[in-house]
Design a protein around this nucleic acid. Structure first.
Lengths: 294, 294
DNA sequence: TAATGGGCTTGTATATCTGCAAAGCCGGTG
DNA sequence: CACCGGCTTTGCAGATATACAAGCCCATTA
């Protein structure tokens, strides 16, 4: 079947007007050009050039083909430059700042695959991402809960995830399983320390259940997770961190659900660096793999 | 370099999720698929698939490539179908109706090349194209001086050409060479018989020199040409028919120039027929070759 | 726990393609 | 009018890619 190599030769012949010059331009023998053009004509069932000792004369079929060939040529170049050298020159250090839960449950468990693919790349994972971290150059890439006011930053959504209300098996046996939002008033809760939360968006409880009675506050989501698991009360936890935890049971999954998004943020200057792109690719891959569990 | 064959295999692997199924779909051996994907990865400098005994897992580079590959695939199919089989199944009879001058000077001199390309095709050339000829099915294709009111007709401009004022060498020696439009009033002219001209557009003289003294009228442009050549007077003739005629001299080329267009008209149903397309291609080719002389 | 089946990788003979060299064709030129 | 230069075509040997076959790995199943 027709392929782009033949079309490339074809275009060269069209542009040069003869096969010899076309062959020189592409860097193959002219007999190869002549034979492939003949093949092309046979497989297409259409004559493309009238040969003469003075060069070639394109037929109408050739003119009909040239537009397609040009589009294919440019698309092919675009394809190449979009992936060319992705895995070459990937070495050095990349510092990635992400919220704590993302670091612990999404990134860290998969760094081995990154290492396998790019042995000379060292990832530094800073599990706290205040909006400041990037502009102060504390990190090369950051995962945040909202797109920051742009400086010279490249921002795009990385993935959506869910928060849900959990309680420990023990606690719920002891205090009873809430069956409706009204029942929640009788329970104690675990939440963030308001002014120490990296992003205000983290605090989902205020939004879904304002005025809840809060028994324990922590700046760390892992600490809250541990507290809920230990029976301190109910808390809004990351689904991706809690679903496989046998000690925890999800409560009122319909009423008490919140959606959040992780955003990928980086300096525009760094976007082209192979090592930076390697980490971005890695994040994309992890998120794609885990999408269902988020 | 990357080519479309590799991209076709690549797409098949992406769609099937494994190389074995991809190979079956394309109809090559699976070892060929594996080797070509490895080649592709080496030449691109980017890993595309993580192999495992359960199939393959695309990398981010693969996802970046798939859009390009799909566009190339569809453009390639479009390219093929645009020329596929142009020269096959070209046999039978095609009747072409054109104005007299077009038939005699543009089409007829080149029919040998058409014959050479399509030995089983018979062209019938009717050198008169009233607008009626197509709708009465007197011809399959027509060349006209204006686009007719469309029925189920396909119409497009074929080429532009020029009319200019000519006189015979003898005549001009005898009567003097006109140097300005004013001089023309002293001369006699040759023109069309108004109500017998196939298209009103043919009559360029009325438009450029209304009220000219007309000594001879004919319905045929060839007859007018002969009359001018024989010294009967001046006449607006086709440049493509007169330029090589040594008996004729062009007069006031700037002032007395008119532009006309030939239009290609055919039934929409016939457009797809290989033999019809062969004739249309032939006309395009002739016009492209002669464009400078028109 | 062994058997089975799907999938990827690795050898080897064959088919295809490419480069090189020589020949043929045609128009321009001294 | 013979020569020359540029172009295409043809013949042939070496290089490249393909199909076939066998081997390996892993998950599922009896």
């Amino acid at each position: 079947m027709l392929n782009s190599d033949e079309l490339r030769l074809f275009l060269a012949v069209m542009r040069e007007g003869n096969m010899l010059a076309a062959a020189r331009r592409i860097g193959v023998d002219h007999s190869t050009v002549a034979r492939r053009m003949t093949n092309m004509e046979r497989t297409l069932g259409a004559r493309l050039f009238d040969r003469s000792p003075r060069g070639v004369m394109p037929t109408p079929a050739a003119f009909a083909l040239v537009g397609h060939a040009e589009r294919i040529e440019s698309e092919l170049l675009a394809a190449i430059s979009s992936v060319e050298g992705r895995d070459r020159d990937v070495e050095g250090i990349v510092r990635l700042a992400t919220p704590e839960a993302c670091a612990a449950h999404l990134v860290a468990p998969h760094v081995a695959t990154l290492r396998a693919r790019h042995p000379r790349l060292t990832l530094e994972l800073a599990s706290e991402s205040r909006a400041a971290s990037l502009s102060k150059r504390e990190a090369d890439i950051a995962v945040m809960l909202n797109p920051p006011p742009k400086g010279r930053l490249v921002t795009r959504k990385l993935v959506d995830y869910r928060l849900a209300l959990y309680g420990s098996r023990d606690y719920l046996e002891r205090e009873g399983m809430p069956e409706s939002r009204a029942d929640l008033a009788r329970h104690g809760f675990v939440s963030y320390i308001d002014d120490l939360a990296g992003f205000p968006e983290m605090i989902a409880l205020d939004e879904l259940l304002p005025g809840a009675q809060i028994r324990f506050r922590a700046s760390s989501s892992a600490a809250q997770h541990a507290a809920v698991a230990a029976g301190m009360g109910l808390g809004m936890l990351h689904v991706f961190a809690s679903a496989q935890d046998d000690r925890l049971i999800q409560i009122l999954p319909v009423e008490m659900a919140a959606r959040r998004s992780y955003w990928l943020v980086m300096h525009a200057d760094l976007e082209g660096l192979p090592r930076v792109r390697a980490v971005v690719d890695f994040l994309d891959e992890v998120m794609r793999t885990l999408r269902d569990q988020l």
